[in-house]
């Protein structure tokens, strides 16, 4: 099998606090890996490290064969990260937000409308400012912009948060179809039962260590 994420003894620091205190993680292509652990265990930091956003202080790591220590910027365009924030411009409408994201990754208008239809934010919602959306609707927008990005690895931090039951089903179907077309998913979720049903493997991290 094809290893897409390979971390060994990774330490990552927030200010002077070790958010990750030596994490090992290996993920194969096509997996849906669920990260488990209490609040503050380092799940968010781990996802940010895998996205090439957070530098690693010690240890070694490769994502898609790219070295995290020397070349983490190169990883970014090939992964998609959904963090706690949605990355939306609150003064832009849903449509304007997605069009902007599409233009940064050279996506076509039809890809945008497909993504919006998939996350059911087309129609009336398309013209609404992001600041007037509910939390769940904002989450849908963020997921739609992730679809537009055609990522090879989907890194999702609490993707179910704020979504209604239908939205969660749609998200799960979306992730399964993404994996079906060759993507890999790593997610952190407190929606234990739902996430367990989705995941092909579970990894527990705690106190920034282990795995």
């Amino acid at each position: 099998m094809d290893t897409v994420i390979e971390l060994s003894g990774v330490v990552a620091v927030l200010g002077q606090f070790p958010a990750l205190a030596g994490v090992d993680l290996t993920v194969q292509r096509g997996e849906i890996v669920l990260l488990q652990g209490p609040n503050g265990a380092g799940k968010t930091s781990l996802l940010r490290v895998c996205a090439g956003l957070m530098p690693i202080e010690r240890g070694t790591g490769h994502v898609l064969g790219i070295d995290l220590a020397t070349n983490r910027e190169a990883i970014r365009s090939r992964v998609g990260l959904l963090g706690h924030t949605n990355g939306l411009y609150l003064d832009l409408t849903v449509m304007q937000n997605l069009q902007f994201w599409a233009s940064t990754v050279a996506a076509t208008a039809s890809e945008v409308s497909t993504a919006m239809a998939t996350m059911r934010i087309d129609g009336r919602l398309a013209g609404v400012k992001a600041s007037q959306l509910s939390a769940g609707q904002r989450r849908r927008c963020a997921l739609a912009s992730l679809i537009v990005r055609r990522a090879e690895i989907w890194l999702l931090d609490e993707p179910h948060a704020g979504l209604d039951a239908a939205g969660r089903d749609e998200l799960d179907a979306l992730l399964r179809s993404a994996v079906g077309s060759g993507a890999t998913v790593v997610l952190a979720s407190h929606e234990r039962d739902r996430a367990l049903g989705l995941a092909t493997r579970t990894v527990t991290i705690d106190g920034g260590g282990a795995a």
């Binding site: 996205a51 956003l53 910027e73 998609g80 990260l81 706690h84 990355g87 411009y89 940064t104």
Partner: peptide, 17 residues
């Protein structure tokens, strides 16, 4: 402020823009 309010600059960075 508009970039940092909802993590948009972070998102741009992850997108490798």
């Amino acid at each position: 402020t508009v970039e940092s309010a909802d993590g948009a600059l972070d998102a741009l960075r992850v997108a490798g823009v």
